[in-house]
Design a protein around this nucleic acid. Structure first.
Lengths: 215, 215
DNA sequence: AGAAAACCTGACCAAATGGTCAAATCGAGC
DNA sequence: GCTCGATTTGACCATTTGGTCAGGTTTTCT
């Protein structure tokens, strides 16, 4: 039996129906929050997109905020998973290329997730500040350490590792976050595998070899 | 005398009071729209931030939409001004360094403007699509031509010029748009001139010379 | 089958929101 | 200091929004 005032299956088992409906809601909510932000998104519209009544949606998530938090939580893991795979033992060029490719794939396959993350951070990260300052910072600290070691060993140039990571984040996410602008200027879309391959090639070339012609 | 149903001074002279109040409103609106997006921003809150009643604000801008459009219009010129200065006759390295510095300055001095622009584009650029496809595309086409010429002359490597521009946009705007994340991870702020100088140095080093150690 | 729990709905509500309007006040030029 | 348009206000309104609730329907388990 459900405890009073709790979301269904708060503490344990989850029905098949719950599994399905929660997933539908989270999908629809991701799209809505990514497009309009937390304030701008409308609960009823999310319910409609999820194929159910607003009342029923509020049966699964007791409030808009709770729904938003759930979407963000599901998002964060996928967002920072790629960085985890950066292997200190590997070859810098191969490792960073693989990392860039993973980030580009994320932009291509989950552009809404990328946009929602951007939106949340742009608003001051009110809901995920503790994640940024906690787990994310720890992970980034670890990986900047790796980059510093590579630099010390002469395997890469000695650049600020934070800024290298920011450069990779910025450029790869840009193709999801600013997709309409890119479409307007080039007619291309990162969802197109051919374009994604081109982008990865150009990006890695720029990052590794730079813009200036070989001396 | 004002034409019926028009915004004050629609067609001509603008009183000192109008000048001052319109400016106040646009400032407050920029902050609000940047933070919450079009839908999420609240007219009354903008009015309060501008130091006037909601009724009075609506005397200057007949609707939220009109106000939003005015903010965007004022924004766009400042956003794309730096690219205009890229001189085909100049030295590639000097020109691009200057461009990067201008974009970084914009991120430092007008982070809200950068964020609002990002927000609008992320939502599909509903209000400025025609600008992206028109004037912006023309300007970018012109400048990609310059980059292509530089490449043909062997003054820079032969990389896709669109992607080079996107890389510069993405990395420079990142410091404004994702400021909370950068603060959480590094404790720095692009508004700090010292940090801005560091960023410019690292960024240009990466872009021009790449990450791999000299052979 | 039948009971209990899970699931779903439509009516309803209080608060918030964008916007209108008539009237009061202010300010520059005569 | 008067006049007329520019400016400002507060009361008011229709609509939208997030959320509640009592009760009905379906699923599940024995």
């Amino acid at each position: 039996m459900m405890t009073d005032g709790d979301t269904p299956a708060q503490g344990g088992t989850r029905t098949r129906i719950q599994e399905r409906n929660r997933a539908r809601i989270l999908d629809a909510a991701l799209v809505a929050f990514a497009r309009f932000g937390y304030r701008g998104a409308r609960v009823e519209q999310i319910a409609e997109a999820a194929g159910m009544s607003k009342s029923n949606l509020l049966y699964y998530f007791r409030s808009k905020t709770e729904m938003y938090k759930a979407v963000l939580a599901a998002l964060l893991e996928r967002w920072l998973a790629p960085l985890r795979t950066l292997d200190p033992e590997g070859d810098p060029r191969a490792e960073l290329t693989a990392y860039i490719e993973q980030k580009l794939r994320f932009s291509a396959e989950e552009p809404e997730a990328s946009r929602l993350f951007a939106n949340e951070v742009m608003q001051g990260a009110p809901m995920i500040r503790d994640v940024l300052e906690g787990p994310l910072k720890e992970l980034v600290d670890e990986k900047t350490g790796v980059l510093r070691r590579w630099a010390a060993e002469g395997r890469i140039r000695d650049v600020d590792p934070h800024q290298l990571i920011f450069l990779i984040w910025a450029t790869t996410q840009h193709y999801a976050d600013f997709a309409p602008q890119i479409a307007a200027l080039t007619g291309r879309d990162i969802a197109d595998p051919a374009y994604r391959a081109e982008v990865r090639k150009t990006l890695t070339a720029l990052i590794f070899d730079g813009l200036l012609p070989p001396a």
